[in-house]
């Protein structure tokens, strides 16, 4: 059973998309970041991506790196991440860890899987791990009944789309534009095309990330995707000092957005 898949399917049954919120553990400190995750759920997030801070976040733009750098310097580690996972699980929302590969490998892949499952985590998203290199993680996630979410991109060939989606469990993460994380004025139709191509090769839900920052954009993406992933916009609430309350208000705006999907002609 995949909890993230069930949750996203449940949202679909209500005629809406799921809202997936990303926040990194440890910014501005561990407790506040956990409170922000709980507030994101309070405002309507269905799934929380619990971000593992990493020193070399090559796929992230300046907003996320600005928040993650101090967390790295403060020595925030997997123990703090697991505490955040437990806190999110306690709200009833679905916690999914988002981590570059090295922190997981350093912690120990099998140990990570066991501890994540014990903390109530549903699985992990690994932005710099492709299925080709993921042998150990495929085995460990299978053994501990965890979701594993790999990314597909507009540049993925049909063959890679099929192979990557086949390796996923829970949902597929469609990186909507070519580029790093960050908010954008428009999400663009590359996302819609990518989702359509992905649906041809998998029955799994497809969630779209990279660029969504407000309810209107969320409504637009909800018109074609099963889940709307928002990261940098949440982080900006914390960077600009609006704290957990700002995170909650943003969640409410986005949660309203995913409930009024703009129908695709």
């Amino acid at each position: 059973m995949s909890r993230s898949q069930d949750t996203i399917a449940g949202a679909r049954a209500e005629g809406r998309s799921a809202l997936v919120a990303y926040l990194p553990v440890g910014y501005p400190d561990v407790d506040t970041s956990i409170a922000a995750m709980v507030a994101a759920v309070g405002g309507g997030a269905d799934v929380v991506e619990v971000g593992v801070p990493y020193s070399d976040p090559g796929m992230d733009g300046p907003v996320i790196q600005q928040a993650v750098d101090p967390a790295v310097r403060a020595g925030v580690g997997m123990r703090d991440v697991l505490r955040a996972v437990e806190a999110v699980a306690a709200t009833g929302a679905v916690p999914v860890v988002m981590s570059y590969w090295n922190p997981i490998e350093r912690y120990g892949v099998e140990r990570f899987a066991a501890d994540l499952a014990a903390a109530g985590g549903a699985g992990a998203i690994t932005p710099d791990l492709i299925p080709d290199e993921a042998g150990e993680w495929l085995a460990a996630s299978e053994a501990h009944d965890l979701d594993r979410v790999f990314l597909v991109a507009p540049s993925s060939t049909d063959a890679r789309l099929a192979a990557t989606a086949a390796a996923c469990r829970g949902f597929v993460y469609a990186a909507s534009t070519m580029g790093v994380t960050g908010t954008r004025a428009t999400v663009g139709d590359a996302a819609e095309r990518l989702v359509a191509r992905t649906r041809e090769v998998t029955e799994l839900p497809v969630c779209v990330g990279l660029g969504v920052s407000n309810g209107d954009q969320a409504a637009e993406v909800a018109g074609f995707a099963d889940g709307v992933i928002v990261g940098s916009a949440y982080v900006r609430e914390l960077l600009e000092g609006r704290g957990a309350e700002g995170v909650r208000r943003l969640s409410e705006d986005l949660a309203a957005g995913v409930r009024r999907p703009v129908s695709v002609p």
Binding site: P127, E133, A153
Partner: peptide
Amino acid sequence: ATGHFGVFGGRFVPEALIAA
């Protein structure tokens, strides 16, 4: 063929770069 020197090397990059 996939860039491994024993256990080292390989590709640990976002999917968006694989095509390039």
